[in-house]
């Protein structure tokens, strides 16, 4: 079942708040998402699809009693506070809803090559003991059994 335009808006607001822009890195809302959602549609098992949809509905609308408005209408600060409170909920199910959103968010955000390059930037004063060679493919001709 594909997302309705309402659901997409709620989903995108939640994901954008899960990983916002920070320290020169783009947030989820700034990365190209088309290819990700296409692969998600093909590959995600029913349990994950159901989990994400449940998460989008539950987190969007539980914000009404808890924060005064549906999630997508909250200010950025309130969105952040709300997600943090839900992630630390007493209820296992609520924590899992946030974790499902976070899993999908991490997958989505880190499917973007530019984001990957920025997150996996060579660390300053990189690892002196690390002699891993990333440029010179090893000759595999000796690989016999």
């Amino acid at each position: 079942m594909s997302w309705t335009s309402f659901e997409r808006r709620w989903r995108d607001a939640l994901l954008a708040a899960m990983i916002p822009a920070e320290g020169g890195r783009p947030g989820i809302s700034e990365v190209e998402q088309g290819a990700f959602w296409e692969l998600y549609r093909e590959a995600a098992p029913p349990v994950l699809r159901l989990g994400l949809r449940a998460s989008v509905w539950a987190l969007t609308w539980s914000a009404v009693p808890l924060a005064g408005r549906p999630f997508h209408r909250l200010s950025p600060e309130k969105k952040d506070r709300f997600l943090n409170r839900r992630a630390a909920s007493r209820l296992y199910l609520v924590r899992q809803l946030v974790m499902t959103l976070k899993l999908v968010g991490c997958f989505l955000w880190l499917s973007d090559d530019d984001v990957r390059a920025r997150v996996m930037k060579p660390a300053p004063n990189a690892d002196k003991t690390d002699k891993t060679d990333r440029t010179d493919p090893t000759d595999r001709s000796d690989r016999t059994l």
Partner: peptide, 26 residues
Amino acid sequence: YDVSILGTRLKTVGRELARDFGDAAR
């Protein structure tokens, strides 16, 4: 593993998670 899986293992969400990614190499 891939840095996306590392992200799921960091215990933060929202801005703090985005900040943690700035330190991913550590």
